[in-house]
């Protein structure tokens, strides 16, 4: 038993330290409950109002997950279409790289204005955010072929179609999984940011509403659920990536 405790301490002393500092800050700074809730109050709000947390949490998770998969599908489909045309690749890859080096979340207000304050807009934003990594990584993966394989396929007299099916597409799979892992956290974050800015529903909206009502325990409770949603999405995508890599490399 002491062994386990020691291991746990070795791993989590940093997290523990942060919690201690937080508590110290609250105690020494004598912050009152409206500014800084006690952890217990946060738990009470979470347990006391499961419905509102569940409803909004599920909505955000569904929007983020659905938008993520849709955006990934779009991105990879366009990357695949581009594989057949060097001009299209040459035109789109630099653009996509520009878009991945700018803060895409800054587009949220623009998209919100274009499509209106609606759940569809949240979805559209997640799709846009997930599109770029999927496109960039799938394109790169379809070009990072195993050494010698291109020569081999040519010598074996492979048609373009069979080269695509047996070589290019499977070669892109690990990169596609990297894109999924990278896009998952930003999908969740941008879904919540969109909800926050438009203020209709979802976890992002709950932050806004809680801030407006000075309901700090609600704001912190929402933080807990938001973190859970993010961790779930990230863990799932990481697991998927590992499983695929084991099979693929």
């Amino acid at each position: 038993m002491p062994g386990i405790l020691k291991t746990a301490f070795n791993r989590y002393w940093g997290v523990l330290l942060i919690l201690v500092l937080w508590q110290a800050w609250v105690t020494i700074g004598e912050l009152n409950a409206i500014v800084m809730p006690q952890p217990a109050d946060v738990v009470v709000d979470l347990v006391g109002n499961p419905g509102i947390y569940l409803k909004n949490g599920v909505q955000t998770l569904a929007l983020a997950g659905g938008g993520l998969l849709l955006g990934m599908a779009f991105g990879s489909l366009i990357a695949i279409a581009c594989w057949f045309s060097r001009l299209a690749t040459g035109m789109l890859v630099p653009l996509a790289m520009i878009f991945s080096s700018v803060p895409v979340v800054a587009l949220i207000p623009v998209v919100a204005r274009l499509l209106g304050y609606d759940i569809k807009t949240v979805m559209a934003i997640v799709v846009i955010v997930s599109f770029f990594p999927a496109f960039v990584f799938t394109s790169a993966g379809m070009r990072a072929l195993p050494p010698g394989s291109e020569d081999l396929f040519q010598v074996l007299g492979a048609s373009r179609k069979s080269r695509f099916r047996h070589l290019v597409l499977p070669a892109a799979v690990p990169n596609w999984m990297i894109a999924l892992r990278l896009a998952a956290p930003s999908a969740v974050l941008s879904a919540m940011l969109a909800e926050f800015l438009m203020g209709q529903s979802g976890l992002g909206y709950m932050f806004r509403a809680a801030a407006g009502d000075f309901a700090t325990e609600r704001a912190f409770g929402t933080s807990v659920i938001a973190t859970a949603v993010s961790v779930i999405t990230f863990t799932l995508s990481q697991r998927a990536e590992r499983a695929v890599n084991e099979r693929w490399r």
């Binding site: 050494p147 010698g148 020569d151 010598v155 074996l156 047996h166 499977p170």
Partner: peptide, 30 residues
């Protein structure tokens, strides 16, 4: 007409296929 056989210095095996499936590959390509 798929009448050439080739082996390179770097084996050029596809990492996602088993031994069997790698040997099978020329059939699929043809």
């Amino acid at each position: 007409n798929h009448r050439l056989g080739v082996a390179f210095q770097d084996h050029a095996l596809l990492p996602w296929l088993s031994v069997e499936a790698n040997v099978e590959l020329p059939f699929r390509i043809a």
